[in-house]
């Protein structure tokens, strides 16, 4: 790891100022992606601006018909939230199954979202639930936020403070994990609110994306059979040692149907 200057600001304004005056600084939240990158010298920021002492960035709270989660809320605390279990249980379950307990004790919502890993689990949840990312400067719809592999709409010096998740009628996330890393080879998050259905896919392209054709079919009939005949085009999908584009296309269809079926199973319980 290269040397860097370390800052521990107590306010968002101090944090933004520290970043703007640094040569090539970086914010750090839980550090579960950044510290490995520093150790491998894939990242070499001149300054690290640690957000851990800034108050008011953690916790899960209800705001009208949405659940708002502070950006510095650890995965372990999101997974443990009784409020989330009572409102968007699928989101709590998804977060509780990320990585392992020691990573969940450090990793944060804001860090994960800002990192924009194309195989991460939070992005499809944000996209399918129609979440809003709240930053120090503005609010950004999830649909406008994830712009590419490890790329987001965040500007330099802008800090995520919270994410607001509208409470859906029903939702389910189905993930086909790499058995070693547990990252999604393909993950599908489906959410339904009234006549509005969103279906988002992670792990399959350079960026999380929605499948409009499946959404339209599911809006007419929210049953697995409604999307059975919809073919997923493999051409733009990732190819790597874990899966071919054709296999990923197949997995998307299967995971999407299983996700819809899972919401039905939940409604009966």
């Amino acid at each position: 790891m290269y040397d860097f200057n370390y800052h521990e600001p107590k306010t968002l304004a101090e944090a933004a100022a520290a970043l703007r005056t640094s040569r090539d600084g970086s914010f750090i939240a839980g550090g579960m992606s950044l510290i490995p990158a520093l150790k491998q010298r894939r990242a070499k920021p001149s300054d690290l601006i640690d957000l851990r002492l800034i108050e008011g960035l953690s916790g899960v709270r209800r705001e009208g018909s949405a659940v708002v989660i502070g950006a510095m809320t650890r995965h372990a605390d999101v997974a443990d939230s009784a409020l989330l279990r009572a409102t968007i249980p699928e989101l709590g379950r998804l977060v509780g199954e990320m990585a392992d307990p020691s990573v969940r004790n450090r990793a944060t919502l804001g860090g994960s979202v800002a990192h924009g890993d194309p195989a991460a689990d939070y992005p499809p949840a944000l996209l399918a639930l129609g979440a809003t990312i709240i930053t120090t400067d503005r609010t950004i719809a999830a649909a406008d936020f994830f712009t590419g592999a490890f790329t987001t709409a965040l500007r330099r010096g802008e800090i995520i403070t919270a994410v607001s998740f509208p409470i859906p009628q029903t939702a389910a996330y189905l993930k086909f994990s790499n058995t070693a890393s547990r990252y999604a080879i393909v993950g599908v998050f489906v959410a339904k609110s009234g006549g509005d259905v969103r279906l988002a896919v992670t792990g399959a392209k350079a960026c999380v994306f929605r499948l409009k054709e499946m959404e339209d079919a599911l809006a007419k009939a929210f049953i697995p059979e409604a999307i059975e005949s919809i073919a997923v085009t493999p051409s733009a999908l990732n190819a790597d040692i874990h899966a071919t584009p054709e296999y990923r296309a197949h997995l998307i269809s299967v995971m999407a149907r299983r996700a819809v079926a899972a919401t039905a199973a939940k409604r009966q319980n």
Partner: peptide, 8 residues
């Protein structure tokens, strides 16, 4: 619990 190799 935390991995002390991945915390400053």
């Amino acid at each position: 619990s935390v991995n002390s190799c991945t915390m400053l």
